[in-house]
């Protein structure tokens, strides 16, 4: 089996498994899984920047929220239908990540982390400031009637699940192809040794900016899909916590692996789901996992598997 067919088998296998799970999982868990697939898109967008390009952003909630509010405000205030609303979300995320990226990429390392954190904080406060439209922390609901695409009602559990799966599948396969392409390999080269990549003639700044924009737009697609499928937009999704989540998912699942973001999102979602049943202080589990991961498994689950068992894991 060649590397390419093995890759294809793995990725299509994962998608087939996810499709099959709909028919066996009880409603509660298939609902969770729909949510997880949308959030995994966010994690995959984050992974492109952190895992493949080596840029650690602490402000991706800005892009997630840009997509979410781009769609939600267009639909709620502008009365747009779902398809142009989704496009509005994508464009909002694209523009925001372009501007934030162009500025933040003038810095590196720790300064980059802090600048992105600050931008996201400013974004969160902006959502609060325009509380008349966004209704702040309380958020607002997108009317059920508007939430349909090409005549398909996205509010039924089955349609919602498969809509989430289609988005997840498109991004999953797209990124699996991208990271094997010359563009993706250049990003990996930048992660490994930016000075050398530059001295091979690559305009590393331009590559990094494209990575931020692509990563931000994918994160925005996740935010827009979340608002569309679950019918709600709120300032919580713009908080620092939602910038930390994708980092947590990707670190746990394995940065720089195509499958890691999904694995991390599934584990973390259920860990927090279980913990929140026991205590209000459920974010404690996120803190403990972060510390344990940095200490003992910086490669994450898929990364550790790749190191120990399957070196071919993409």
């Amino acid at each position: 089996m060649t590397a390419a067919t093995r890759d294809a088998a793995l990725h299509l296998g994962v998608l087939t498994l996810l499709a099959g799970l709909w028919f066996v999982l009880p409603t509660y868990h298939s609902g969770n899984l729909a949510r997880i697939m949308v959030l995994a898109v966010y994690a995959m967008g984050y992974n492109l920047l952190f895992g493949y390009t080596g840029l650690l952003s602490l402000g991706h909630a800005l892009f997630f929220a840009a997509g979410m509010y781009g769609l939600a405000i267009a639909m709620q205030q502008g009365g747009w239908s779902a398809a142009p609303g989704f496009l509005a979300g994508l464009i909002a995320a694209l523009v925001v990540s372009g501007v934030a990226g162009a500025l933040a990429l003038r810095t590196t390392g720790v300064a980059f982390m802090i600048v992105t954190l600050m931008f996201a904080q400013a974004g969160y406060l902006t959502v609060l400031y325009f509380g008349a439209i966004t209704r702040g922390d309380e958020g607002f609901v997108i009317p059920q009637a508007a939430r349909s695409l090409a005549g398909i009602d996205l509010t039924t559990p089955a349609n919602r699940y498969f809509a989430a799966l289609i988005l997840f599948g498109a991004v999953f396969l797209g990124l699996a192809w991208l990271v094997r392409s010359p563009f993706g390999r250049t990003l990996i080269a930048i992660r490994e040794n930016e000075a050398r990549a530059k001295m091979l003639g690559y305009d590393t700044h331009a590559y990094k900016l494209r990575a931020v924009i692509l990563s931000g737009t994918i994160s925005g697609a996740s935010g827009a899909a979340y608002a569309l499928l679950f019918g709600y937009a709120g300032a919580t999704f713009a908080t620092v916590q939602y910038s930390i989540f994708p980092l947590l998912w990707v670190l746990l699942g394995g940065a720089g692996t195509t499958i890691g973001p999904l694995i991390g999102a599934i584990f973390m979602f259920y860990l927090i789901d279980l913990a929140s049943g026991v205590t209000d202080a459920y974010m404690l589990i996120a803190g403990v996992v972060l510390v344990l991961l940095t200490l003992f498994a910086p490669q994450g689950l898929a990364g550790t598997l790749r190191n120990r068992v399957w070196p071919w894991l993409p």
Binding site: P182, R185, T186, I188, E192, R196, M199
Partner: peptide, 19 residues
């Protein structure tokens, strides 16, 4: 200053691919 984490082939491919 090579790409220490990548294969020898990929190191040279990165150099060739730009052109």
């Amino acid at each position: 200053s090579v790409f220490a984490g990548l294969s020898v082939h990929e190191n040279v491919a990165l150099a060739a691919r730009r052109r």
